[in-house]
Lab assay of single mutants.
Amino acid sequence: QVNIAPGSLDKALNQYAAHSGFTLSVDASLTRGKQSNGLHGDYDVESGLQQLLDGSGLQVKPLGNNSWTLEP
């Protein structure tokens, strides 16, 4: 069960990665100043990332080996 409060997208993504045990490689300029609506409930990694990114204009991309990145 994930419980991440709304706020900074950077912070939300870092909390989610730490909670879910995956690696997220992101260029900080992509997420700077963006906000997230947070995340509450049970999600697989990709669904949770998509939910956190909702409205940010960013997309999640798998890199393999439980690693992910973001792209515009």
Rank of each mutant, 00 (worst) to 15 (best):
Q1S: 13
Q1L: 13
Q1V: 13
Q1W: 15
V2A: 07
V2I: 11
V2N: 03
V2L: 09
N3I: 11
N3D: 10
N3L: 10
I4N: 01
I4Y: 01
I4W: 01
I4F: 02
I4C: 06
I4M: 02
I4R: 00
I4L: 05
P6D: 04
P6V: 05
P6M: 07
P6L: 03
P6G: 09
G7P: 01
G7C: 12
G7W: 00
G7V: 05
G7F: 00
S8N: 10
S8M: 09
S8F: 09
S8C: 13
S8T: 10
S8Q: 09
L9G: 01
L9A: 01
D10F: 13
D10T: 09
K11T: 13
K11M: 13
K11C: 14
K11F: 13
A12I: 09
A12P: 00
A12H: 01
L13N: 02
L13Q: 02
L13F: 00
N14A: 15
N14D: 11
N14R: 15
N14F: 14
N14S: 14
N14E: 15
N14Q: 15
N14H: 14
Q15T: 09
Q15M: 11
Q15N: 07
Q15R: 06
Y16M: 02
Y16F: 15
Y16T: 01
Y16H: 02
Y16D: 01
Y16S: 01
Y16N: 01
A17K: 06
A17E: 03
A17N: 02
A18W: 08
A18H: 09
A18S: 11
A18I: 12
A18D: 08
A18K: 12
H19A: 13
H19M: 15
H19V: 14
H19S: 10
H19C: 13
S20Y: 15
S20P: 01
S20C: 15
S20K: 15
S20T: 11
S20A: 15
S20D: 04
G21W: 06
G21Q: 07
G21M: 07
G21Y: 06
G21P: 00
G21I: 04
F22H: 03
F22L: 09
F22N: 02
F22C: 10
T23Q: 11
T23N: 10
T23V: 11
T23Y: 11
T23R: 09
L24P: 02
L24Q: 01
S25F: 15
S25H: 14
S25N: 12
S25P: 02
V26W: 15
V26H: 12
V26N: 05
V26A: 10
V26R: 03
V26M: 11
D27W: 09
D27R: 06
D27S: 08
D27H: 08
D27T: 06
A28E: 13
A28G: 10
A28I: 10
S29V: 10
S29W: 12
S29Q: 10
S29R: 11
S29Y: 12
L30A: 06
L30Y: 07
L30H: 06
L30T: 05
T31V: 13
T31N: 04
T31W: 05
R32F: 15
R32A: 15
R32I: 14
R32D: 14
R32G: 12
R32P: 08
R32T: 14
G33S: 04
G33H: 08
G33P: 07
G33Y: 07
K34Q: 07
K34H: 09
K34G: 03
K34P: 07
Q35A: 08
Q35V: 13
Q35E: 10
Q35I: 13
Q35F: 15
Q35Y: 15
S36E: 02
S36F: 01
S36M: 00
N37K: 14
G38M: 03
G38F: 01
G38K: 03
G38P: 01
L39H: 01
L39R: 01
L39D: 03
L39A: 02
L39S: 01
L39N: 01
L39C: 05
L39F: 02
H40D: 09
H40Q: 13
H40S: 12
H40R: 14
H40M: 12
G41D: 03
G41M: 01
G41A: 01
G41I: 05
G41N: 03
D42Q: 13
D42F: 15
D42H: 14
D42M: 14
Y43V: 06
Y43A: 00
Y43N: 02
Y43E: 03
Y43K: 01
Y43M: 07
Y43D: 01
D44F: 05
D44L: 06
D44G: 08
D44R: 05
D44W: 03
V45H: 07
V45T: 07
V45C: 07
E46C: 14
E46F: 14
E46Q: 12
E46K: 11
S47C: 12
S47I: 08
S47Y: 08
S47G: 09
S47E: 12
S47M: 10
S47D: 09
S47Q: 11
S47N: 08
G48E: 02
G48H: 00
G48I: 05
L49Q: 01
L49K: 02
L49D: 00
L49V: 01
L49C: 05
Q50E: 10
Q50R: 15
Q50V: 11
Q50K: 14
Q50F: 08
Q50N: 12
Q50G: 07
Q51C: 12
Q51E: 09
L52M: 06
L52A: 03
L52W: 04
L52Q: 00
L52C: 02
L52G: 01
L53P: 01
L53A: 06
L53Q: 01
L53V: 13
L53R: 00
D54W: 14
D54R: 14
D54C: 15
D54M: 15
D54N: 13
D54S: 14
G55P: 02
G55L: 05
G55C: 07
G55V: 03
G55D: 04
G55M: 05
G55K: 06
G55A: 05
S56W: 05
S56P: 02
S56L: 09
S56K: 03
S56I: 06
S56V: 05
S56Y: 05
S56H: 11
G57E: 04
G57Y: 04
G57W: 04
G57M: 05
G57Q: 05
L58A: 01
L58F: 04
L58H: 01
Q59C: 13
Q59W: 09
Q59V: 14
Q59N: 11
Q59D: 08
V60F: 10
V60R: 02
V60C: 13
V60Q: 07
K61F: 08
K61V: 13
K61H: 07
K61W: 06
K61R: 13
K61P: 04
P62G: 09
P62K: 13
P62M: 10
L63M: 10
L63P: 01
L63K: 08
L63T: 11
L63C: 11
G64V: 03
G64K: 05
G64A: 06
G64W: 04
N65F: 10
N65K: 10
N66A: 06
N66L: 05
N66I: 03
N66R: 04
N66Y: 06
N66G: 09
N66K: 06
S67Q: 12
S67F: 09
S67M: 14
S67R: 12
S67G: 08
S67N: 11
W68N: 01
W68T: 02
W68M: 04
W68H: 03
W68Q: 01
W68I: 05
W68K: 00
W68A: 01
W68L: 04
T69R: 09
T69A: 12
T69I: 13
T69C: 10
L70A: 05
L70T: 02
L70Q: 03
L70E: 01
L70G: 01
E71I: 14
E71W: 07
E71N: 03
E71P: 00
P72H: 09
P72C: 12
P72A: 12
P72V: 12
